[in-house]
Simulated scan of single mutants.
Amino acid sequence: MKANKNRDLAVRILEEVGGEKNIANYTHCATRLRLVLNEEDDGMVQSVKSLPGVIDVVRKGGQFQIVIGNTVDKVYNEFSELTGGIEKQDNSGDTEKGNIFSRIIATMSAVFAPFVYVLAAAGTIQGALIILSQIWPNIADTGTYQVFDVISWSPFTFLPIFIAITASKHFKTNTYTAVFANAALVAPGFSELAQRAGAGEGI
């Protein structure tokens, strides 16, 4: 049922923004479907804002940002299927909406937003451990503390893998190839090589 609602919302949004021909680029962040439109007006803002499932519409930085909430990724997937499954790219390079700054912001949002909650959760665990260690100094010597400490650092240790997954989806490349390329950065052997190189050894 939810999938149908997401599909219906994607269809209605596509209709209200003038169809695929009016879309130069699109992506999403944690809560917003971000469109770069060739043409937009106030009437379009009001019509999209009135759709069931849309919280708000913001026009900012050359983007038509549709605030949907935590189901935005599902709506985005439906939207992507409706438009051929490939993010449209504006190659003109000379318009305000297609300038390099807007593209960089959109790319960073698409790459980092999907796993920001994971980093927030890891940070929360680290904060809890710090508070507990202040109340109970000896807790740092317990196995429970050490296990949760490792868990809390794991997303940051393997951050290149997270980036490889989201970036490969954004740039439409093979996810396994991207993970393979970035896995070397977190491989124990690579860290050892970096330490040896730092000590002056030729590698």
Rank of each mutant, 00 (worst) to 15 (best):
E78F: 01
G53K: 03
Y145R: 04
L37K: 06
I135W: 10
R34V: 02
F190R: 01
T95C: 08
P160H: 05
L82R: 02
E20C: 07
T173P: 02
A110F: 05
D41T: 07
M1W: 10
I203S: 11
P137S: 09
E81M: 10
R103M: 09
Q195G: 11
F156E: 02
K60L: 12
V186C: 12
I100S: 13
I105M: 06
R103V: 09
I105A: 06
N38H: 12
D73L: 01
A178G: 08
V111I: 15
Y145D: 06
V116D: 07
K2V: 12
K172I: 05
T124H: 10
G93C: 06
T175W: 04
P114T: 09
T142Q: 10
F180K: 14
T175G: 01
D141H: 12
R34I: 04
W153H: 12
F171P: 05
K169C: 06
C29K: 00
L193A: 13
I163D: 01
K60P: 00
N38M: 07
G85L: 09
I105L: 08
T166D: 05
G200T: 11
M108I: 12
G19R: 03
S47W: 00
L33G: 00
I13T: 03
F158H: 03
P160Q: 06
V118Y: 05
V179T: 07
K21Q: 12
K5S: 12
D73I: 07
D42T: 08
G98W: 03
E20W: 02
D149E: 14
G62P: 04
G62H: 03
V17K: 00
T95F: 04
F156W: 14
T157D: 03
I130K: 11
L51R: 03
G189A: 14
T27D: 02
T95Y: 05
T173A: 08
A122D: 07
S47Y: 01
A183Y: 09
S47A: 15
Q89T: 14
P155I: 01
T177R: 08
L159D: 05
A122Y: 05
R103F: 08
V11C: 08
K60V: 12
G198Q: 13
R32W: 01
E16Q: 14
R12N: 15
G202W: 11
E78P: 03
V58T: 09
S168P: 09
K49Y: 04
A128K: 09
G18A: 07
A164V: 08
L35E: 00
V118T: 14
D149T: 09
Q146G: 09
P114F: 06
T107F: 10
Q195N: 14
F158A: 03
H28Q: 07
V72I: 07
G143N: 13
E15V: 09
N6I: 04
E87I: 06
